[in-house]
Simulated scan of single mutants.
Amino acid sequence: MRTTLALLLALLLAACTAAPPPAPVRGGSAALPGPLPSGVTFRPPPPEAAAAPDFTVPLTDGAKVTASALWKDRPLVVVFFSSWCAKCGSEQAKLTELATTYQDKVVFLGVAARDTEADLRGYLDKHQVPYPVGLDDQQQTIGRGYALAEPPLLAVVAPGGVLIKGLTSANAVGDALRQLVG
């Protein structure tokens, strides 16, 4: 009887002290959208639009994501930013609003440049960035593919990988998405 009580007490104490599961890493793969909702349609991109450069980037949780997998069946907005960029910070609230409004219809993907992991995590937490984010390499290979001179740059890519626009404001991204999403 005492052994049973001692065992029950030990199990109760163990259950009370068990650590909760870790929260998902902000900017990681848990922020990728779910399946495309049925009935969502997109207008075709302009015929003169060029193909968007494909790339693979490691997200903040270490998972890798490839742009062409994201734009396969829905638009992709690539948000090129840096934690030290004042305009990036001022545009982030509107980008967060757009990412929430178009959740599961449009993929937003952040690509940070010339940042440390600590500065990037600080930015993501401060601005409550809701979408996946990766860090470009030291040579800024991804940014160079999109002709990034200085952040911010916001690239809107139509389903299938056609680069519609490169923009510098979240309001312009909102206008482009309203034209694209049926």
Rank of each mutant, 00 (worst) to 15 (best):
W84T: 12
A15Y: 04
S68R: 12
V107W: 01
R74Q: 02
R114N: 13
Y131G: 04
V79A: 05
L95D: 02
A30D: 15
P21I: 01
V157D: 05
V173A: 06
T168Y: 01
T3N: 14
K64M: 08
G145Y: 00
P33K: 04
L120K: 10
L8G: 06
L109V: 12
V173D: 06
K64A: 13
L124N: 03
D73N: 13
L59D: 04
P37H: 03
P24G: 03
R178G: 00
A19I: 00
L163T: 07
A52K: 08
A30E: 10
L32G: 13
A6Y: 06
A93D: 10
L177D: 06
K126L: 09
G174P: 01
L76S: 07
T116E: 06
Q103Y: 02
N171A: 14
G89L: 08
L154E: 09
I142C: 01
G174R: 08
Q179D: 13
E48S: 13
T168A: 04
L95S: 01
A86I: 10
P159L: 11
E117G: 07
D137Y: 01
M1W: 09
P159A: 12
A23F: 07
L95H: 04
L12T: 08
T17I: 09
P151Y: 03
S90A: 12
A93N: 02
P22I: 14
T3E: 13
D125G: 08
G89T: 15
G28V: 03
V162I: 11
P53K: 05
V173L: 05
V79D: 15
F81C: 00
K87H: 14
Y131A: 07
L36V: 12
P132Q: 09
G145I: 07
G134Y: 02
Y146V: 05
F108T: 12
P46T: 08
L9T: 15
E117F: 11
A172K: 01
L70G: 09
A14Y: 05
V111M: 08
G39N: 02
G143T: 01
T66C: 06
A52Q: 14
A6P: 00
V40N: 01
D73S: 14
L180F: 03
V157E: 04
Q92A: 13
A15R: 08
V77N: 00
V133Q: 07
L12I: 15
P58G: 11
A67S: 15
L12V: 10
R74M: 07
C85H: 10
R26M: 10
